[in-house]
């Protein structure tokens, strides 16, 4: 039989794909496995134990840093998503005009600026404000996180809006819905998966941030990632693995919840 040509199957692609998957997931698998190590070592298996999870849960620093991380992430993600939703509506629900592209660029630019640059800039900027106002609370971290989360929240929301038929909103207006009611009963329900995706993305990005947080935080304002970074300078125990594993679990949960919520609608 003659060999059929198919663009879907090319020699070597499967192998390359497998290598990529291994490179991505093998280290994570190892990390998760050693979180359950009974011994002190990160490389020698000494039996199964949950002791490092217990230790992590008893570590006051970890608990405080986790709570702080969550506080910042929740507030920053909510505010960023609200802002991003408004920005997305303003940039898609309008006739194209000169300068609209520039606006897109402005909203998305933070994705392009090296994070370290933003971090240094914010450090200098906030230290000034700290001197003037005397305030040194979590507000700075929340503001910084909100700012860099906006473009991440904006992207999925805008993508969703662009795929949405404008005629639906016209139809609502035609059927006596005021602009607010049109938004409430037609735009928002249809946009919801996009908003949720934006919210999740912003939340995860905020939760994960190290560079900007490290620069902006005041003393005693460690988030979970910066706490872990600090710990790495000392002796590393599988406690780090345990914390990382819990972190990973949280991420997976978020993605799963999002997947099912999204699947249920439409």
């Amino acid at each position: 039989m003659a060999r059929q040509f198919s663009v879907r199957r090319q020699t070597g692609f499967t192998t390359i794909a497998m290598i990529c998957f291994f490179a991505l997931y093998l280290p994570i698998a190892v990390l998760v496995i050693y979180a359950f190590n009974a011994g002190q070592s990160l490389s020698i298996w000494e039996g199964f134990s949950l002791r490092w999870f217990v230790k992590a849960f008893e570590n006051q620093h970890v608990i405080e840093a986790s709570i702080r991380s969550l506080q910042i992430a929740v507030v920053a993600a909510l505010v960023a998503t609200a802002a991003a939703t408004m920005a997305a509506l303003a940039t898609t629900r309008t006739e194209p005009y000169r300068g609209l592209t520039l606006k897109y660029a402005f909203i998305n630019q933070p994705l392009m600026i090296p994070e370290i640059v933003t971090a240094v800039a914010l450090l200098i900027f906030f230290s000034r404000i700290k001197v003037w106002t005397g305030y040194s609370g979590l507000g700075y971290l929340i503001a910084a996180h909100t700012a860099f989360c906006i473009p991440f929240a904006y992207l999925p929301i805008r993508a969703r809006l662009e795929n949405m038929d404008l005629t639906l909103e016209r139809a609502a207006a035609d059927l006596y819905a005021t602009p607010w009611k049109t938004f409430r009963y037609v735009t928002l329900p249809l946009l919801w998966p996009g908003i949720l995706a934006g919210l999740m993305l912003a939340f995860v990005i905020s939760l994960d941030d190290v560079v900007i947080t490290e620069f902006v935080k005041s003393a005693g304002q460690d988030t979970l990632p910066t706490y872990m970074l600090g710990q790495l300078r000392r002796a590393i125990t599988p406690e780090m693995n345990a914390i990382s594993t819990l972190f990973l679990l949280l991420s997976i949960c978020i993605v799963t919840v999002f997947f099912f919520v999204n699947k249920k609608r439409i």
Partner: peptide, 20 residues
Amino acid sequence: MPPFKRPVNTVFQSYALFPH
């Protein structure tokens, strides 16, 4: 007058039924 105040209704070419 904005569309939501006009006592006219439209049947759209694409129907524009609300999918949700």
